[in-house]
Each structure stands twice: as structure tokens, then as C-alpha cells.
Design a protein around this nucleic acid. Structure first.
Lengths: 348, 348
DNA sequence: CCGAGTGATGTTAACGATCACTTATATTAT
DNA sequence: ATAATATAAGTGATCGTTAACATCACTCGG
């Protein structure tokens, strides 16, 4: 039944309580310099008017910042989605608000476009830098407001050392482990169905997972087959992986993520190849569905939610330096062996 | 290399261009009352300083609103996530910004807590009202700022007529169709693995999908088995559905969403029941993975993204009345028959 | 040749808060 | 009693923008 008139401001509260607006501000912000009696009067007035501070005005006036903007390209991907969840949780616990803005890979964003996403100059920002638009945005903000940005992405130890604004996991190492596991199982080599690289064009930019995989094969003296490029979606993977499942000499495929693995399983099934008998499949990310496919997917667990939280903490540190520089702290990627991987069928 | 000094304001631009700040404002907002020469001067100054308007200040000053807050309980669910994507796209195309705030089902939010999520009183808000916290938030905002809120949720025709702030799909009808389909296939009855109801306690609140299912069974004069309550996650479904898959008299299960269906498929597999031979399974939502499970899941497609876009348009209409009252326009839910459903094995 | 109309700018006052001071009152020390 | 010091509350400026109104220089019709 509230009249849709207009919200109460700090002045309305002050008038009703018979004090100055500044005193109201003190009460709202929990200043100790206010008499108990006055505080109660103000609190009553606040309750009666249903007053609540306008955050916009607050941050305009130079109060606490209390907001983060997340720039991401693909919210339907499990990784970014989980990381976003982590950011949101961490932010909420401190009463920060979270804005999201999606970078559409379809349209080309000028640098100005990207910056225009932010509600104001210097807005604290977290970028999901796992693909081309994300990398682009990362670069723009790095040039514009390096102190108020953090990027989430895969990294190598050297990259992390060089980039105090980077948070993420060592994808290369995780991929290496998974590859080693398959080799130890007795596979002659391991094929790779790869997620798009950060530059969009395969072979161009960084591809941490692919690099880790290739390194292990090289070190083991095995043949390094050409990685097969795929898009992010299951259906793209399904199409891309066809030549691999059709080739009986392929006995193990490391997939760039669980979506790709699911597409691969389906393709293998339709091609009449049994998993893991004829073909071992390993995914990446430990997406919720991966434990419930049949056969259940062997994959690499990644705690994206913790990474998101870590990114938020780092950002907070960089923006106001209040909290101590947080150390990245989350479980290392870990191989979870389920049912889609096994030794190759002994040949001849 | 930008000095992290401080962002340029409209005054800085004005000074550099040798005009008043208001003229800059006119240029920025595309007012026609500005001489071409002046406009150019201002534009140059803007470019030189890298100026961009501060949205906070803008909306404080009574400018266009340009922001929506989305209140949701579970971003990991496909429906809300897709709807959020739709909202974000629609918002972005109009240069609105999107805030999200997650209602944690774990903690109990007081009404004040919920309102405190909003950056300011009267903030345009979209609520995902598919569970208890969402319904609660819906009610609070309905009391507080009915003009600036829209809820997304399942509805029946009557509910929609009564609630000009509601957007969503007719889940009951969709569930009815799926049930009818299974009955037509020859199943004696259809069991139901149900998502949590909007009040959290099963049997309490609305459960549109369950109602549609039950109605069809009743109308067909079939036995209406007790629906089996499940949580939202695959693992909860896997546990909850055990009695159903263990019972050989159960030949068809309508699942409240595709996650539950996946859990059911897995449970059926482990129980040694073949799908669809021994057991038909139908899901809900047409989650991306559903086409790629083996066997591929029969499910009900829902265009959540369009619903999200519709919610945004409706909100915009309600907030400023500028655009015409949008009519809900998106595809009806549609049954997609794939491989998990078929006629029951002829008994005896 | 002058008042009205028009187009391009400038001026001032919000918007809703915080911050840095200043002032008034109460308490304590000398 | 008086100065020194806390403590409580008020005043005014400020943040970056927009809205509303004021001003100024022209042009035009009578």
C-alpha cells in the first residue's frame, strides 16, 4: 500500500528526528560520536519513513566504493558462471553490489565501447579473460585503470609472477597431469579436442591446456597429433570431433572441457566406439553433470568458485589496499578418475 | 601509461573547450540546440581528456534510469541463468546496466535485507520467483515499489491476468502435454520426480509442473502416484529417485527438469533398467546437454532467454511507460521427443 | 527602427550522500 | 571559579550531472 510518491532522503529523516542531516549520516554509518538518545530518535525516524541510503549518492560523495563490475563473454560456460558465483558471494558478504556486462563475441567492441560499460571511471572491475573479447577488455582496462582491475584466466607460473592483477589456475599443469595419466594407462599417444584460444584463431594465442598436453607428449617422446579445434558448445564439439572418433587408431582424447567431452562421448557412441573400451575420454572442469553421464566422465576438477572469490579479494586489495594482499588459496586442479578412461584394448 | 590521477569530469571538458558545463552536457546527450562549431570543440575536448559521463551522477541528477537489478536465488540453474542472459542482452542493447544479487536460500532474509540489496529506492528490479527466497522477494517488492518490479515465474492463465507484473510460461500446460504424450505411448500411468515448490516445503506452495501432470492423470482416470520430491541438483535427484527406479511397475517418469532427468537416467542405468525399454524418462527445459546424453533426452523446450527479454521490456514499460505495453511473445513450451521415451514393454 | 521571436549559451539549483570544519554543551582539571 | 578538553551536533562545500530558467545576440516583420 505504499504510495509510490518518492523515497525518503537523509534530509527527511533529519527533519522528522529533529536533527541535522549529518547526524543521520553518523547514525547510518555507525559513528560512535552520537548520543544514545539521539541515535534512537534517528533510528525511529528511519524506520518510520522506511529510509534507506541511496548507494549512488553515497559513492558519488566519495564514500566507500562498494561495487564491482564483472566483464565476461559467456555466462553459459560453467567456468565463468561458477567464478561469477564466487565473486557474487564474496561481494555480498561485504555488502558490495555486483554488476555484470557481457561482451558479445559477435560484435567487435572498440576500446571506448568496453570502457563505456563501466558505470564510472575507475570502477573496480573483474574480467573473465578466457577468450578474445575478454583478453581485449583486459588489455583496455590495463591501460586505463590498472589499479582497479583484476583478470581471471589460466596462467603459467611466470605469467602469474609478472601480473599482479591475474588470478586463476595453472591449466597447463592440469592438462599435463591428465595427459600423463592417459599415457601411463598405456595409450600410445593422446589426441586433443581443444577449446578456442584466447585470440579466437586457433594456433594464434595462448592455449594453456593444449600446451600442457603437447609438452607431456613431447617429453615422453610420443607423437604429438594435431590438436582438433572446437568451439565452446557441445554441438560444435560433436561436429569437430567426428574425424577423431572415426579413426580407430585414436584411443584416447583429452577434451578442453566437459562440454566437449560430452559431445565426444555422443559422437563415439554414434560411431559405434565403446567408451572406455575403444576410446578413453577425459574432460576438464568437473561440470556438475560429469559425474552422472553414462559412463561417468573422467575429468579435471577446478574450483572456479574459489577463484572467483580470490579475484574479488585481490581486487579489493588493489582498489583500497585495506585488506592484506591475499594469497591465492584454493585447491589445485585435480584429476578425478571415473568411468570414461581406461587402458587401451591390447592391440593384436 | 595513464596516470591514475583522477577521471575527467564534465567541468574539465568544459574548461578545455571553453564553454559551460551545461553545454557539454547538451553535447553528450545529443541536444539539437548546440552550434556545430561548439559541438566539435566539445567533442575534441572529450576525446582529448578521455571523458565519459559518470552514470551514478547522471541518475542521481534525475537523468534516465538506465539500470536494472536482478534478484535470483540460483544462478547455477539453467532456467534463471538463461533468463538472466536474455535480460542482459536486452538491457545492453539499450545501454542499461545490469546488477545481480543472489538470494541465498541458506540464510533467511528479512524484508529489510531484501530491500537493502537494491542500490536505491525505486530501483527497477526483476525477480526470479521460482523458489522460496524468490517468492519472498517478490512479495516484498510488490509491497514496496510495485511500479518498478517484474517477476519471472511459472504461471497459469488466471495468475497472469491478475498480475500485470508477471512474466513467464505456462508450466502446467507444458507438463500436461508431456504427460499426455507418455499416456498416449501406452503407459498405464506416469510418475513424477518434482522440483522443489516455491515455498520450499513440498505440498505447500504452487507446483505448476506437478499440477499439470496430476490433472492429466486425473482426467484420464489413471492412478495419480505420489510425486517424489527432489532438490534442484542432479545428485539430489539421483538419491530421491531410487525408489522409483527400483520399482519395476514404474514405466514412465516425468522429471521436473533436465537435471533431475539426468540423475534419473543414471540411477536407472545403475539399477539395471534400460531406457527407454524398461523406463521412459522425460525432462523439462531442454538444457544444452540434453541432446547429447546417451540416450538423448526427451524434454520440453522452454525459451527462457526470450522470457528474460520480455521481462526486461515489461519492466521498462512499467518504470517509465515510454515503450508500449509489450505483449508476451515467445514460443510456447514444446515437447522435443528424443530417445529416452517410448512405449512400455508389453506386459506379460 | 524597435519590440518580438528564436537559437545558442550561461547560471543556479537540485539530486542524496559524505567530508572537513566549526560551534555549542558537558566534563574535568587546576 | 576558570581554563582546558571531550563529546555531540551543526554548517557548508563537494561529488558529477541534469533541469529549469536567465541572458545575449541576432533576425524579422510592421
Amino acid at each position: 500500500m505504499a504510495q509510490p510518491k518518492k523515497a525518503a532522503s537523509i534530509w527527511d529523516v533529519a527533519r522528522l528526528a529533529g536533527v541535522s542531516h549529518q547526524t543521520v549520516s553518523r547514525v547510518v554509518n555507525g559513528s560512535p560520536r552520537v548520543a544514545a538518545a539521539t541515535r534512537d530518535k534517528v533510528l525511529d525516524a528511519i524506520a518510520e519513513l522506511g529510509y534507506r541510503p541511496n548507494r549512488l549518492a553515497r559513492s558519488l560523495a566519495g564514500g566507500a566504493v562498494e561495487s564491482v563490475t564483472v566483464l565476461t563473454a559467456d555466462t553459459s560456460l560453467y567456468g565463468p558462471e561458477a567464478a561469477l558465483r564466487g565473486i557474487e558471494k564474496a561481494a555480498r558478504s561485504l555488502d558490495w553490489s555486483v554488476q555484470i556486462s557481457v561482451l558479445d563475441p559477435a560484435d567487435t567492441h572498440s576500446d571506448a565501447d568496453i570502457v563505456a560499460r563501466l558505470p564510472r571511471a575507475g570502477e573496480p572491475t573483474i574480467i573473465m579473460a578466457h577468450d578474445e573479447p575478454g583478453m581485449r577488455a583486459k588489455q583496455v582496462l590495463l591501460d586505463t585503470q590498472p589499479q582497479a582491475m583484476v583478470a581471471i584466466g589460466p596462467y603459467t607460473a611466470e605469467e602469474l609472477a609478472a601480473s599482479p592483477w591475474l588470478v586463476g589456475m595453472d591449466d597447463g599443469k592440469a592438462a599435463a597431469e591428465a595427459t600423463k595419466y592417459l599415457l601411463d594407462l598405456g595409450h600410445r599417444t593422446v589426441h586433443h579436442l581443444a577449446i578456442p584460444t584466447s585470440t579466437g584463431t586457433f594456433g594464434g594465442g595462448k592455449a594453456h591446456r593444449a600446451e600442457g598436453w603437447a609438452r607431456v607428449l613431447r617429453e615422453a617422446g610420443r607423437e604429438v597429433p594435431d590438436p582438433v579445434p572446437s568451439g565452446w558448445t557441445i554441438s560444435e564439439a560433436f561436429k569437430a570431433v567426428q574425424p577423431l572418433v572415426a579413426d580407430p587408431s585414436v584411443t584416447a582424447i583429452l577434451c578442453g572441457n566437459d562440454n566437449l567431452a560430452l559431445g565426444t562421448m555422443r559422437a563415439a557412441h554414434l560411431a559405434g566406439r565403446s567408451v572406455p573400451g575403444d576410446l578413453s575420454i577425459v574432460g576438464f572442469d568437473n561440470t556438475p553433470f560429469s559425474a552422472y553421464t553414462t559412463p561417468a566422465l573422467t575429468t579435471v576438477n577446478q574450483d572456479f568458485e574459489s577463484v572467483g572469490r580470490g579475484a574479488f579479494e585481490l581486487l579489493r586489495h588493489r582498489v583500497d589496499g585495506s585488506n592484506p594482499r591475499p594469497k591465492p588459496s584454493w585447491p589445485e586442479p585435480e584429476l578425478i578418475v571415473r568411468e570414461t578412461s581406461g587402458p587401451p584394448r591390447s592391440r593384436s
